[in-house]
Design a protein around this nucleic acid. Sequence first.
RNA 1: GGGCGGUUAGCUCAGCUGGCCAGAGCACCUCCCUUACAAGGAGGGGGUCAUAGGUUCGAAUCCUAUACCGCCCA
Length: 1091
Amino acid sequence: MPLNEYNPSEIEGKWYKKWLESALFTPDPENEKEPFVVVMPPPNVTGSLHIGHALNMTLQDVSVRYKRMRGFNTLWLPGFDHAGIATQWVVTKQLEEKGINKFELGREKFVEKVWEWVPVARNTIKKQIETIGASCDWTRQRFTLDEGFARAVREAFSKLYKEGLIFKAPYIVNWDPKDRTAISDLEVEYKEEKGNLWYIRYPVVDDSGKETGDYIVVATTRPETMLGDTAVAVHPEDKRYKQLIGKRVKLPLAPEKRTTWDGKEVSNLIPVIADDYVDPEYGTGAVKITPAHDPNDFEVGQRHNLPMVIVMDESAVMNENAGRYRGLDRYEARKKIVEDLEKSGLLEKVEEIIHNVGHSQRSGAVVEPYLSVQWFVNTKELSKDAIKVVEEGEIRFIPENWKKTYLNWMYEIRDWCISRQIWWGHRIPVWECKDCGHYNVFSDDIYESIPQKVIFNMYGDTRIGQIFSFQEVKNYLYGQNFNQPDKTNLQFYEKFVFNTQIDQLKDEENLKEFLNKNYIKVPVMNPEGIEEEEKIGFVPHTVFFLYANGFIGKTFDENDVFDAYQKNKNMIRFIYDTVLNGIKKEDILEDKEKLKKWLFDHAYGNCKNGRIFFTEMQERFSIIEDHIRETKYYINLKCEKCHSHNLKQEDDVLDTWFSSALWPFGTLGWPEKTKDLWSFYPTSLLVTGFDIIFFWVARMIMMGMHFMKEKPFGDVYIHALVRDEKGEKMSKTKGNVIDPLDMVEKYGADSLRFTLAALAAQGRDIRLSEKRIEGYKHFANKIWNASKFVLSNFENNRGKVFKDLSALRLSYDDKWILTRLQEVIKSSVKAIEEYRYNDYANGLYDFFWHEYCDWYLEFSKERIYKGTDEEKAAALSTLIYVLDRSMKMLHPVMPFITEEIWQKLPFKDADYLPVAPYPEVDNRLIFEEEKQLIEDLKEMIVSIRNVRADFGIEPSRKLNVYIKPSDQRFMSVIQAMEPSIKLLAKIENLEVSEGMERPPNTVVAVSKKAESYIDIAGTIDIEKELKRQEKILKDIQKSISISEKKLSNENFIKKAPSHVVEKEKSFYEELKQKEEKVKKIIESLREVQTS
RNA sequence: GGGCGGUUAGCUCAGCUGGCCAGAGCACCUCCCUUACAAGGAGGGGGUCAUAGGUUCGAAUCCUAUACCGCCCA
């Protein structure tokens, strides 16, 4: 069936579905073929993909599709990033628009809202990725906050903690006062801003604290932080201040007593200390030291053991340490303080300066260096192997210059602050014991059985609490999974998390039994409808709880109850605090005598101590059982140190990048030793942008080396940033993103992909213009129409087309295009393997358009329309052959149009193009001589066309042309190709002979292998022709002189490589011949002129 | 302040380890609706490759310096 007009939207929709149905992108880990693995950088679930993602996806897909066609067992694993702060930000905004405040909503409800949003964003993005044609394996789709990742994160955290590589410490962090969270160094953006440098006098005091009248002047850009000063530092060798070292100064404006972060009192008389850190040349040579609000000062403070005074709260509002400035915003306080200093004559001067101010990448707020207690990863330790593997070239950066960037950063890596004071993310798996203060870091290692691990993971995930109901567990386990909508969460656990069947949780009965057996039951009473005197209080509930869970037996006395209570006091208190906080606690249980009495009164009045029977008990307590609303279960977590149940999990969540750092192995099943992990780790290639080399790439390498003892990937291709037409960075937060779907709609995914690949030269930013995409749509159209031509002729000549070209009588042009094809196959492979996507795309563009279409197709027409069967067979078979290879080569970059066309071709060697073999060079189809002859023929045709244009002869006018070839060989080519030549050069009559003399009134076109005499049918303007030829001669002679200069240079002959010299020589010869020819023409023209 | 990169045609950019008098797309000019394609065809104009030195037989390509632009880190 012939093709209609090219309409991308008609053909792009259908193929993707078919590919997925045929599972072309789902590799088998047991396959013996060499693997090629790429993990997709997971897009954030914040909105939709921008053009930068499209570039990222396209480049990955080109490499992945290419490798798949080369026969690799190819896996491209897709997924999504929960993107902590970014996603929380998006949802917060959405809620604010509805007038909902997240703090009023509360953590649990807020996180629910985020979970509602995530699939919305996820599905949009997924659809975009599909629309672009990414050949990734959706059956392995993952999420950085899915069940498996939650487990992997806890495992990683716990291991690192136990190895001493994670610690909690007070430290200066970058504090975002708007979002009220710490952020990492990398999340701070510095911008140059105008500011002031205030010079402030600190009065020197004597031993008794009285001002001596001297001052020491310090300079600061942030005067409000002076309230937190605990020293003034000078350089130890600075003569100006030497005598002041050890003395004290009085901190102006500060209250007499301030309190350090850990509750100690600090006076407003602060010491002058000596430290090398101070640059005596800079400012006044004296520096105020604010250890709690400046990173450098913090270090000075550590060295000198200075107290640390925090003067602001989490929102950057001045706190009680600020005395009379308390309650003011930091900038109001700054203003006020400057005013007050001025009034009291303590402000020496003000200088205007330009300085770098740190802003939060996310919220834009000015970052406040702030002392707080945070969790850190000791990256110095982890960086060792991560440095080695890059230094030794085991991991390769492309382009290579990123290696240096990476290493420089790694050499000076700082501890990584991983705690974030937000709600959306992996909650830090640390449970602080409220009784002994011990930090318990739990992973599911504390359980033996898989079902228990599952429940623990659900708990650690905060999907269920430490106290949970059957219903909650059931709903979750049997509910739809986020990654794999056709699976339940339990099935996801089985397949992706534990890699095993979990029968004990499979149906409700088993599940209930499992819970009853393994967890402490907490009866939750229904207080309504109970008579006042029977209302369940703390004591009866506790006794029942102890009884129901077997802490005391069927028979018991006050000793049993007392002991059991004492043993489980923390747990009971915890449970009561959590689920029964309406009930008043009583101290009866703490006192054996009271307890005895109570038991006697309430439970077993007429029975003897220790011998009450169950039935009687039940009679009394039936009232309680009647009022059990439901039974909850309690996860029996205990402090490792004091066994208290009074544990509280950290509220903070982990930096998103902590989980994405595990991406290359977490997605493959780690910490389980799965087949996927075994077969597909380490991965082969990572394609990403340079903006996340530190955030992500470096951390994946560190974590990969640490946990897998092996690099996470071999090659790291760093692509350019796609900028908008103004050259500005597109970013999620700026909102200047371009929706690639618009481009797809207008120009088709193939055109968009081709554009991105063609622009992806290594090392430079891409400034994308829509024009460019439009241009490449024209290319797609060209492919379409050329194919239409080939296919329709094939339809009309089915029997005359052959797969094997060796049996055919190939003509010069067949051999030429086949030779060119081999060369292009070779260069395309080289380009793609070296990640020169632009060369790959442009190489194919040129070949297909300017050789296959512009020349070969045109050459072939004569034989197709008028040739013998034998000639038709050769031409059509070659056309089909080259088209087939071209579609294969173009497929990685233009998957849809190539599939559409290829499916219509004969001799298919696969069901679908994504799994068809990439073309290999066939040495039998290389014909050097014929290739050269056709190149010469092309030049001859162009020279004739040039004459037409120069003389303004319309293409419709056919000319008579006489050709004098320079040798016999070329003459036979002309004869063989005569009809085509006539067609291409629009010639009416063509005469060829070696002894051809220029007929009168003809214009001459000189080419390498021929002189063509063109009868332009009319008297020629001799003047004009002379001028034209003289110009040609001049150009030739200019080249000759350059060439002569080279060849006459002894050193060139001696030192240049021989092939260069040879080339130059033959080039010179050619020029000389041409010069000769042109000279003769000019001569004859002159003769005509004078006669 | 430290580091990295850029400066090539009017615009957007290629040009890999130095080797045919520098290329593409778009834009521009001329001619053409020739049965695959006007989303096309044929032809054309346009650059002392930022500047100044240097290395070399040979430099857009390597080195040094300068200017301007951009990015990253502190």
